[in-house]
Amino acid sequence: MDLTLAIIVTVVGASTPILIAALGELVVERAGVLNLGVEGMMLIGAIAGFVVQFHTGNPYLALLSGAAAGTAASLIFGFLTLSLSANQTATGLALTIFGTGFSALAGSSYSARPVTLMQPLLPEQLADHPIGRVIFGYSFPVYFAFVMVVAVRYFLHSTRAGLILRAVGENDQSAHSIGYSVIGVRYLAVMFGGAMAGIAGACFPLLLTPQWAERMTAGRGWIAVALVVFASWRPLRLLAGAYLFGLVMTMELYAKAGGGVLSVIPSELWAALPYLATIVVLVLISLRRDATTNAPACLGKPFLPTN
């Protein structure tokens, strides 16, 4: 039982940054923009968060700086793709390369420096009991991620602004012709995606491993991008998907480290599960006759008004 609880705690840690970054990308893509720069923005957020945590010791300020740095990086992308109508795929890839190099440069003098981890959000008494620990024992970003899932879902499906954002992503020409600023809405979405990726990056030094290391996000930004497709652009499925990926990533290690029950499923199978799950989901999606794949119709297309 104790081991089960310990595994849950590790899974939650592994899933949280992926969920936060993917949630940002989901909103970006719902507005019709494909930003493949998530990994780069996460790294920029990670170094910004680390530097602020190192100098101030205030993890909330560190998260905010991660968000600010991620937003700044996303504005580069926004300017190129929205204002100048550059190719989104190429620009996003360039942003990832830029973020990797820039964060390495900015972090070059912070290599042998530890920081302190973010403390749990809720009072310790709540986390005294093992079950309490599993529910109440996390720091702020874990709960933030859950709240944001609900908030994004509510925003997209129950608010006027969310409807406009979806309209921009589904049919930019129509949205434009009835007077909405397509570029303006997309800028806001891209900035939100940048802020979320920045926060997700800052989670690495604050939540998972209190240090700065070059490329420390190690490809999780790409998992976040893939998860958005996996979740067919829906926030609740994204939550399930992020935790599923977190679970298999963690279980692979627990299965390798342990004997007994855990080794019933070989670690190789755990390692292969995310890919198997992706294939199964894609097959299921394509089998459904009543619905499309749910991809925003204008995803990845630059907006050039026709009138």
């Binding site: 590790t10 592994a14 690495f204 996000t217 963690t250 290690l253 390798k256 342990g258």
Partner: peptide
């Protein structure tokens, strides 16, 4: 680093 840390936890 995050994977190294999780392996250590496991």
């Amino acid at each position: 680093p995050a994977k190294e840390a999780d392996a250590a936890r496991a």
